[in-house]
Design a binder for these strands. Sequence first.
DNA 1: AGCACGCCGACT
DNA 2: GTCGGCGTGCTC
Length: 803
Amino acid sequence: MNQIAKVVVDVPVMQTNQPYDYVIPPELINRLEKGMRVEVPFGPRHIQGFIVDIVNQSDFVGKLKEIIRPLDLEPVLTPELLKLGEEMAEKIFAFRIHCYQTMLPPMLKAKYEKEFYLTNETYTEKQKDVFEGLQAISWDDAIEKELLPLLLEWKKQNVVDIRYLVKNQAKAKKVTVYQPNLLPVDIEKELNSLSQRAKSQRSLLKVIGDLEPEATLTKQEFFELFEVTNRTLQIGIKNGWLKSIEKEVYRNPLKNQMFPKTQAKVLNAGQLKAFDAVMKSIQEEKHDVFLLKGITGSGKTEVYLQLIGKVLDEGKTALMLVPEIALTPQMVHHFKGRFGEQVAVMHSRLSTGEKYDEWRKIKSGEARVVVGARSSIFSPVENVGIIIIDEEHETSYKQEENPKYHARNVAIHRGQYHHCPVVLGSATPSLESRARAQKNVFHLLELNERANQLALPDVEIVDMRQEFQNNNRGNFSLLLQEKIRDRLEKREQVVLLLNRRGYSSFIMCRDCGYVHECPNCDISMTFHMDTKGMKCHYCGHEENVPHRCPKCHGNQFRYFGTGTQKIENELQELFSQANIIRMDVDTTRKKGAHERLLASFGKGQADILLGTQMIAKGLDFPNVTLVGVINADTSLNLPDFRSSEKTFQLLTQVSGRAGRSTLAGEVIVQSFNPEHYAIKYAQNHNYDGFYRQEMALRHRGGYPPYYFTTQITVSDIDENKAQVKIYEINAFLRKKLGNKTVILGPSKSSIARMNNRYYFQLLIKYKNEPDLQNVLTEILNNSQKDNAKGLYISIDTEPINFF
DNA sequence: AGCACGCCGACT
DNA sequence: GTCGGCGTGCTC
């Protein structure tokens, strides 16, 4: 009886979104396991696939092919993750192969190559000439050297054939280390045979004699620890005193950083209550979801740390998710300081090699605590004792690209599997989570006092309309200017937030009102001060600022939108003596810049920190006593039913940055809509009030959490084809879905054209549609031909963006 | 996604 | 008559 492997292949289309059967060749039986990557033949090609199961027989009628080779020595996906990927793919309308690939570090994604090789032994002069003694010519080289037509011709004549290669990119970093290769007696012998004058060689022998027999040292270590010169070392290697070994090492992104050990702090009554509640689930190995709602500064992190500590004590592992922008050095320090080498940190700023190494540390069990951004929810941890999602309201937990998963849902799924609690923490929980707590689906835990006993900062709102009427056309109200001046005098620090959500700077012709738009996308291009150029944020197209208006040939442009640079200039003019640090996408692009700027501000090397969203989270600077929000309401006017929620969250978070230590804090919020409830409730630190009012509005408007939503987007190069298709889908859905379900649209997407493709969308709002999964899968299955022709249908469950 | 197979227009 | 366009269907 043959062993059969079921393999999910790397061909992301509906038709192949299922396992294919392959024979396991005799020499690989017992070497292959579920969860390994393999190279398989698929049609004429060779591609990568994942073994999802191993069975004894196949239902496939036809000749099975054999697996070519394994790409791993041991499985990269656990049975849990294999199953999770399968279920997730179905739920979010993604391809299984995409789900598996996102669970793994990018290095484990195969690269493909193909090459021509000569099939027979005897060649013509011409063929000899072309191949120049080469074994093979790669497809890319063939194109480059314009040999492709010739080689394809030869292929027809069977002179050459094409070989398909699967390149495994997973490479561990190796260093050469040196190990003693002499017994003590040998050392004596060597010493005796050396002349007395060979001082450095004699000292090297002594060094070797003092080393542990199993010790491995790099060249660098010999230089630095024992003052051995390279020349001497080379002699030692040549004489066979030392043997060189290639040793696998982890790339260490945090090298040279020390993490002073921190101790558990004493919890206050509120913290203890929350801690105990979660501990109970941990001990009973029970899957509960807790919503830990704690005001800023209430010490949520300490609760997390102590829960993780207990989980580790029980021999289990812990997963901790943090939004990408909150993964600051401070955050890393908290965890590394408490748990040291047991912590793996995963975030997007690591190189692919570093990501792979962190992943390996987790896989091997060396790291038992994972701290990371969204995709860390797929970490290959086993025996999980707790999963924590900090700042659970953050929309970055939903991936916007395929597969469009939400880390919160994945966390709950994994929590069920591991019988462990999931803790969702936030000062401003999402309405969805808070409502679930209301219905007792989640357990609500509240921390209502600040750990340091300090009062929440006073929040003052400045009506910017008044400022305008009083002829202050700048971005800084008189009150904010006065407060900043006061802090500068007292040598205290200021944080200024520029709310730029959904905001960009563009240029407009003063004469005719022409706005410069991207040639590929129906959207205005953004002006970038640093490159002095225009860039499209959707397709990446770049060009120079036009000299003359293409429409009326005028040469007067007006620059719209308030960039951080412009604000910085204005600020510097107002306070010429102040040191300002600006943090935005431009100043933090370089690796490590983010950390460096924050460290510099923390050390008091600047008076004012000016930045976008990225400064609102997790920062804890004791000397900051004033926080200013320059424009509270840019996020309020977005065509998005969550705009109030987003604004409330942002204001609450940034307010929490003030008064983190003994110094009292103060917050100034500048707004053109000072009466707006989101701003008012944020001013009074009143989450519950905001929650009630917002829920009422959502109820009235028929929005989440009262309804579920699913968005369908159709796109094509041909506008008409896309439009016809979305109407066809609309008709189909209306026929299939219940009459209580609402369908909004179809409509043109608000950015109707992107990268020369036209987009149409519709939104399904429903409360109970048990058959929706099947209906939507049917739509995708029926559209496979359209898909092949370049018409794409995308389904997004619970979308975040509705444009 | 690739790649092969297959059926219709413009060329040596 | 053939070369090659890309529409259609399959990949264990």
